[in-house]
């Protein structure tokens, strides 16, 4: 029986996924892709919760994941509605150019 992957590996993987998502949020200019990077970060967190839930033997971690998914769905819905509204007003989809609220 091959050795089980220790908890730390899962946590490390989720950290790397989170980092990748963060970089994506900061660096990409297309707003849709920024959104997808946000979803990636959320999923990294989900992985952390599930791994720890198993490690601690408590279902609470999975319950939290449940909620994260729900909130992610709501957020995606609203965010995409905003994007639709933006495009309807003829705005660009480039994050660098959506800067009306500057000083």
């Amino acid at each position: 029986m091959p050795p089980t992957a220790p908890l730390t590996w899962y946590l490390g993987l989720s950290a790397v996924l989170f980092a990748i998502g963060a970089i994506g949020v900061l660096v990409r200019r297309n707003v849709i892709v920024i959104f997808m990077a946000i979803e990636l970060m959320l999923n990294a967190v989900n992985l952390t919760f599930v791994a720890l839930a198993r490690s601690l033997g408590s279902m609470d971690g999975q319950v939290i994941v449940f909620f994260v998914m729900t909130v992610a769905a709501a957020e995606a819905a609203v965010g995409l509605a905003i994007i639709i509204a933006l495009s309807r007003n003829g705005e660009t989809m480039n994050a660098d150019e959506l800067v009306t609220l500057r000083w």
Binding site: A22, V25, L26, V27, I34, A95, D96, L98, V99, T100, L101, R102, W103
Partner: peptide, 17 residues
């Protein structure tokens, strides 16, 4: 100080991070 308000969401996200 108000130059911090660039209007660019990603800059704000960077400050969060």
């Amino acid at each position: 100080w108000r130059r911090l308000q660039t209007g660019n969401v990603q800059h704000y996200a960077l400050s969060f991070l």
